[in-house]
Nucleic acid binder design. Structure first.
Lengths: 245, 245
DNA sequence: CGAGGCCTTGATGCACCTCAACCGACGTGG
DNA sequence: CCACGTCGGTTGAGGTGCATCAAGGCCTCG
């Protein structure tokens, strides 16, 4: 049921000078809207990158919290485990997105973060981020926006889980992925899913069979083409009309 | 369907010197863990309180964001409206809790906040809070914890919506309320619900009839006693065993 | 080439939704 | 005062969307 669980830690780190100034993700990540000297200061803070192979854990629920992680390359899922063994995927994270915001509250991670493909993250020591935020108000303010955005996103998922039917949920999910890929310079109509049907189902509150059937239905209707993990959206307007229609 | 919609603004304000130092909610609210001078500074920041009557809006989705609100007395719901008219309750908020964290990201409120009983809130201008946080690191850090806690809470709700059955959802909900009342010095086994069955249902992703039936079932089993909005929990252990059992 | 993971599809059952009737509490106005 | 309407809640009957169980096919990778 779980993906291959390889040794979780220690993380392989590289000191190949991460540099926010030249990072292509700059506009998606933490430095949004900062001036050059500020971005350089932030670059000093991010003291190393970690390589995480597919199936490896970035962190586990319960492990102590020191740093946030910015996804530099790759794809992650985060999931929480209930005591009775049920697991729920709480999010998928792609380049430029921050992982670990949930852990600030208790200084322990509340979820597992697992790489769904070979990935690379920038480690951002949180106490240093707070220190730096004191001297760079726009950085602090932007960080608050990021946390707030996470809350808004979660409310969207609650809405989805609370009041949408299977097909609407899947359409919403695909449109969300599409938009996020587009923002990163990839095609908004052709992409590869990095997660299994079961993981999608867990995120959307559905069983994997239901996800599969919903894919088939959208395909029969000529809205998308599905070939294993490859998704092609052929009629995005009709896909949009599925949600809240 | 909606409760009485009275004039939303302007809010009635009172300058009866709010004072965090002497506030009985201090340990539940923003000043947790601050020293005396720091709490006093925070008190200066909270420049006035607002009275909100039952059914009135604290803010509406789309309205511009200036301040967070700390509930000083009373009870609120927040809810988002979908374009097709469906509404989803995203949270219930009691004394000591902060409302408006979702609005930081876009500087617009993303949800309506409505008082479910006559209430009073402290208005906390957000830019001032950020300024003050620069000089009082523990305040900033605690604020980050509060935002993070909100994210964790939302993940809990996602788990509930994604993988629990009706009875489990209601049990989880009641236990959560029970714990929050207890923290505020009220009985953990006897309390009045401030929201309707429909609002509970919206929050839990259920229809009101299903909520009602779940209440009846728990009552038949001798776990709780329901009398309109009054809930008595007579066997909290069995109630706990309902969730994740 | 074989094994296992992932996916699809079908058949069946059930939890919850939907529709509907009814009840009690409350407020209003004759 | 009671008649009345409204709102929130309960309960029943029937329908349905999704879960469950099961079988089989297809990629992938050792």
């Amino acid at each position: 049921m779980l993906p291959d669980i390889l040794t979780p830690k220690p993380l392989k780190t590289s000191h190949a000078q991460p540099n926010c100034s030249t990072c292509s993700l700059r506009e998606l990540c933490l430095p949004v809207g900062l001036d050059e000297p500020e971005v350089e200061a932030l670059g000093d803070l991010v003291n190393h990158k970690c390589q995480i192979k597919r199936g490896e854990y970035l962190h586990r629920a319960g492990s102590s919290f020191k740093s946030l992680y910015a996804v530099r390359r790759g794809f992650f899922k985060t999931c929480v485990l209930e005591k009775d063994g049920r697991q729920q995927v709480t999010g998928f994270h792609m380049t430029g997105e921050l992982i670990g915001l949930d852990a600030i509250s208790t200084e322990q991670h509340t979820c597992d973060a697992i790489a769904l493909e070979d990935s690379e993250v920038c480690e951002i020591p949180f106490t240093k981020l707070e220190e730096m935020g004191r001297n760079i108000p726009p950085l602090m303010h932007h960080f608050h926006k990021i946390m707030s955005r996470e809350i808004v996103k979660d409310h969207g998922v609650m809405m989805l889980l609370g009041s949408m039917k299977a097909e609407e949920r899947l359409a919403t999910f695909l449109l969300n992925l599409s938009r996020r890929f587009f923002k990163r310079g990839y095609s908004s109509s052709d992409f590869i899913l990095r997660m299994t049907r079961e993981e999608i189902g867990s995120y959307l509150g559905l069983k994997l069979e239901t996800v599969s059937r919903a894919f088939s239905k959208l395909q029969e209707e000529g809205i998308i083409t599905v070939s294993n993990k490859h998704i092609h959206i052929s009629d995005i307007d009709r896909l949009k009309s599925k949600v809240g229609g």
